[in-house]
Computed example of a mutant assay.
Amino acid sequence: MQPEPFVREAGAGSGVVCLHSNASSSGQWRALIDELAPGFHVLAPDSYDAGKSPSWPSDRTISLSDEVALIAPVLARAGSPCMLVGHSYGAAIALMAALTSPVRISALALYEPTLFSLLDAESPSPNEADGIRQAVARCGDALDAADSGSAARHFIDYWMGEGSWARTPEARKPPIAASVANVRRWAHALWTEPTPLVAFRSLNVPVLYMTGEQSTRSARGVERLLTQALPKVEIVAFEQLGHMGPITHPEVVNPVIERFLRVCAAGG
């Protein structure tokens, strides 16, 4: 039996499904949900092993198609067509969901999808994905040594800059460290995704592609490829933000998402 995710839900109107990043949960979208709820039916699921959703139930290593299957009932509740918002791993899931059911998705607002398989398909290592590849390896070594704190530090410091884990409030560290236990699973899903870059040329829907100019080389490399392939893409670069912009600066990112969704819902 297919597990169902926990879902935050609010509002009425055109359906919007928000997909969170790794080491996070649907809670990262609280402010956006509040902003959108007066005009949209907003649903934000927790992914496997995040928030209140179930654990990945199989010994088989997860794929992005499994992540898409988990949110299938959420997309159904959102109605057809609906719009997707995604950040990082969640943005990668959003892209795959749109390819899987193109008639059900009318627009995508993406902040730095992490489809690293596209970089390796373009050119084997050494390439732009090496930084995150090395960070994942360091995380894995720390997990093998039963040091979840160090694993979380490697992961967070890669995405947010050296010293970010040390500056994280102590109360927030335990759930982040617990989630980073799944880092190899996330990496496997992102690096083994077989979908070729050319497939994204068929996504004939409006795409808002957001990026932080202070982000990592790996995220910017994926941006370079996808923004050339997506046929209806609008690029917004936030000069002072990094990869975690939707979490660190929602007051900057959320209004851009909201404006895009309102234009799309109005048929613009």
Rank of each mutant, 00 (worst) to 15 (best):
A135R: 04
H41I: 08
T216K: 09
F116W: 07
L110N: 02
K173G: 10
A145H: 05
C264A: 14
P175V: 12
Y89C: 03
F260P: 01
G131S: 14
A151G: 05
L95D: 03
D120M: 09
L108R: 04
L19V: 06
V222E: 01
A109F: 00
F40S: 10
S218H: 04
R184H: 12
S215P: 02
L95M: 06
V17R: 08
H41D: 09
P57G: 09
H87M: 14
N254K: 06
R220I: 04
D46M: 11
S53W: 06
P246L: 13
P57K: 13
S202W: 01
V233W: 01
S14H: 13
T114E: 02
G163C: 03
I257L: 07
R77M: 11
A10V: 08
E234P: 03
M244C: 13
S26Y: 01
S101Y: 12
T61S: 15
A69F: 01
W29A: 07
F40V: 08
R77A: 15
P174M: 14
H87I: 13
I33L: 11
G245Y: 05
I62K: 00
S202D: 10
D34I: 07
R201F: 01
N204H: 12
V252C: 08
E213H: 04
A142L: 09
S26R: 05
A266L: 14
D46V: 12
E35Y: 04
A91H: 03
L115R: 00
V263H: 13
